[in-house]
Write a protein that binds this DNA or RNA. Structure first.
Lengths: 255, 255
DNA sequence: TTCTTTACTATGTATGTACAAATGTATTAT
DNA sequence: ATAATACATTTGTACATACATAGTAAAGAA
């Protein structure tokens, strides 16, 4: 007989599916992430102890600890020997940070009219890096979207985007409209988490010609990894910004 | 009979002491940190596999994995199933905005030793921009802090900081310690909000010479405005990062 | 050759177990 | 009352073990 392992918090039922392909410690981590959002625990109440919780979820204490460790490392939980585990007081400000916007939203928020200079849609084989990010095989084609956008006077950003096959894009969509809105309405894909890496580099010939600048001019380079609510990868995005016409802003607040 | 567990790399003998009070996984982590600094492994050579290595060190595979996991999380190692573990190619540093950390905290969290190459403290008249930000008159001197910091091998960031007079800095403080902690403890000033503008530029002569790179190389430029709990300005900070050794990361989550 | 199958290697996932150490609480002795 | 002691609780450390899965390479079939 197959039991159904779960935990109920704020009349919300969080379960672990032992038949799922998703590793148990990943499921447990996702579950804990939701758990610690609930008002019951943000107040500083201790979580159920590890032995209890592992029993409730039907996983071993070792596996559970694997998940907890990650959250501790991320600064979401804090533990004390002999006491217990609770939501960290300085619960990261990531959730509060408001920089979750699509390009068009970012621009219109600044009052800048957008123009699309180029737009190419194609199906390509992922390289190792992409296949790794999307967790797919390299012989499975994915949608590639290349966009050159900017102000009426001229382009200032060159995008290269790749999308996970499961997102269900056909390549026939209207890519002039805000992308994430379209994904949500037409494909029921909700972009939830975005991880970005920002660095600087010099324009090579391709980038320089696209952005109508000279080789060796400074470029703000942004890699963006977008995930849905279950931390599944949706989009891999490379953005090359002309540094003299774009500034990336971040606002963070300690809690 | 007590065996002596160790590993030899670059004629350096790294050992694990089973009689020590320090937990084995902590010792193993420290050992691996040294190990992966050696030229043998930075080249991309695979580390000994987990089963072998755990035997050599006289610890269980589980314990060893605990150490490796942490280094993977810190971005120092990368693993591939069926292949092995090696030093991550882009062993470049990154800054996680979500944790609201000072430079030294960011670095020490990643196990990177910091070195201060230069440190200059002076009192200067603010220019218009600074006076405007701090809401003070231009004839009121403010504290200027210039720092050149980086890894033992060489500097990778050049900071220019200015502080509001009301913060109460005398210029005699210990600026090698984490700055915001010191402000909080000794001057009861709590940094709360940080607004950052990130862009790219080319190294000019000053920056190039300080960062030991060439004129025209790509620099990640970060302006940082720091405010206290009442939104009063505390610090104005300019950071010039060598782009090839620093990546700025942002993680955001929609609510 | 070229493709397929097979074997091997290394990491990934998961469990069960045992004892250590820190903390808080209840009990007892002074 | 106060201090010392004992006990229960909870996380921390550590091990042995088993099987799953991805990647690589060698052997075999077309």
């Amino acid at each position: 007989m197959s039991r159904n392992f779960h935990i109920i918090v704020s009349s919300m039922k969080l379960t672990i599916d032992h038949k799922s392909q998703v590793p148990l410690h990943v499921q447990a981590e996702a579950l804990l992430r939701k758990l610690i959002e609930s008002p019951e625990y943000v107040g500083g109440k201790l979580l159920p102890n590890e032995v209890e919780l592992s029993k409730e979820l039907g996983i071993s204490r070792t596996t559970l600890r694997q998940s907890i460790n990650k959250l501790v490392y991320d600064g979401l939980l804090s533990r004390k020997k002999g006491v217990g585990t609770k939501v960290a007081e300085s619960k990261s400000l990531s959730s509060k940070s408001k920089n979750w916007m699509s390009f068009s939203q970012e621009m219109s928020a600044r009052g800048i009219p957008i123009r699309n200079f180029e737009l190419h849609v194609s199906w390509v084989y992922p390289d190792k890096r992409l296949a790794g990010f999307f967790q797919i095989k390299e012989d499975k084609k994915i949608l590639k979207l290349v966009r050159l956008r900017g102000r009426p006077e001229g382009p200032f950003v060159y995008f290269e985007s790749y999308f996970h096959p499961n997102v269900g894009l056909t390549g026939e969509e209207d890519y002039k409209a805000p992308l994430y809105e379209m994904l949500e309405k037409e494909h029921s894909v909700v972009a939830m988490v975005s991880k970005e890496e920002i660095s600087a580099l010099l324009a090579d010939e391709l980038i320089a010609s696209k952005l109508e600048t000279s080789v060796g001019s400074p470029i703000l380079f942004r890699k963006r990894f977008v995930y849905d609510i279950d931390e599944r990868p949706i989009e891999y995005n490379l953005g090359f910004y002309k540094a003299d016409s774009f500034v990336y802003t971040v606002e963070s607040r300690r809690e």
